[in-house]
Design a protein around this nucleic acid. Structure first.
Lengths: 199, 199
DNA sequence: CTCTCGCTTGACATACTGTCTAGTGATTGG
DNA sequence: CCAATCACTAGACAGTATGTCAAGCGAGAG
């Protein structure tokens, strides 16, 4: 490692941090409306070109923001958290945790999904993340077991993924409802999904 | 009524028709990517100014396109079609019909939802349409009955609306699956939703 | 104390929506 | 039959967005 952190590197790191934080703030603004790199740069106290210097594109910046947000809310480790619990309970907890996350980052995620719909590379980014989430859910479902075929397991994972996706949460949760009510509603459907596998 | 349809009115109507048709074609292009009023005008063989002459804004044009598409697939009259059938059967048929519609207009609807996310007025348009769809579903659910409270009925309608929404369909249906499989999957969840009201 | 490296910047190219004006040609009504 | 009307075209304009670039400036190294 370098002997001392140069003042230069330090200020660069500070700039990057400020940009990511500004991006998170701008994206999290509950007031609906569009956002721009210009707004992020302004909020960070730098120019747009500086932002592009650190992040090749809007997509790169979004990736960085998502990383910090996911880390802050501990949404990685969705499986490990309740590894000891009863599989069904663990699944219900995962659904509830996911709902809380969607709720906490609702304005930000709305903008992100909005951007994804219009921008192919952002869409690819979110698809990759959803793929990772699907793996997590598949693990949890695997522990529950009781599925006749591999195809049925795939369908079950697909449905669970769709039920617990952000767009579904955003549609289902009103503007006032907390994440708890929505999680309860979703978990009833999840129970039905698990029971339906036997039918 | 006017004595004779003037040649002028006729050509104006033809122009409007050509623009709407061109818009539908451009929006329905399965190749993913962005679209523009310029592209629509080009496809219609007119200039952008002409398009704006007939439709105040992009939102107006989208509204017109949606009207023709909904009319073509007979998605109005979702309730009336199976008024005589058993309520549960009617509901299942409505779900299936909805899935077929989402499937038939998938590329177009993807672009529309994409645009909606970035454009507030388009979002309002789609929200209005979803509100109308909700009413239809509420009628069908009302015929099924068996719901304890008004609040529960509201939640049930919300869930059904979310389950049968385009984004859910688009997530659930792979790129190869026909609408039939997805409708079956969704209808299993709908059955659970109806059964869950008693619990 | 000077030189170098690279962060930062203002300006630029490109693309989109929506508006406006001037002009053209065909249809309509007197 | 001729003049007025009206749809359409061409083109420019303002506003907003993304992404690129040469050039300046400032901190750290020798």
């Amino acid at each position: 490692m370098p002997q001392a952190i140069g003042i230069r590197e330090q200020s660069v790191a500070a700039t990057v941090h400020a940009v990511v934080r500004a991006a998170r703030d701008v994206l999290s603004d509950p007031e609906p409306g569009t956002w721009s790199m210009e707004a992020v740069a302004l909020a960070a106290g730098v120019t747009r070109a500086t932002v592009y210097n650190h992040f090749r594109s809007r997509t790169d910046l979004i990736e960085a923001v998502l990383d910090t947000v996911v880390a802050r809310d501990r949404m990685d480790r969705l499986v490990e958290v309740s590894a000891d619990a009863d599989p069904v309970v663990a699944l219900r907890q995962a659904v509830a945790r996911t709902c809380r996350f969607w709720h906490a980052e609702r304005p930000l995620l709305r903008r992100l999904f909005a951007t994804a719909y219009a921008d192919a590379s952002v869409e690819a980014l979110l698809r990759r993340r959803e793929g990772w989430r699907r793996e997590q859910l598949a693990v949890l479902l695997g522990r529950v077991g009781g599925v006749p075929s591999r195809a049925a397991a795939r369908t079950r994972a697909d449905v669970l993924l769709a039920l617990t996706s952000f767009p579904t949460y955003d549609r289902l949760a009103g503007s006032t409802d907390g994440p708890g009510r929505t999680a309860t509603t979703l978990n009833q459907l999840v129970s039905a999904l698990l029971a339906g596998a036997h039918a």
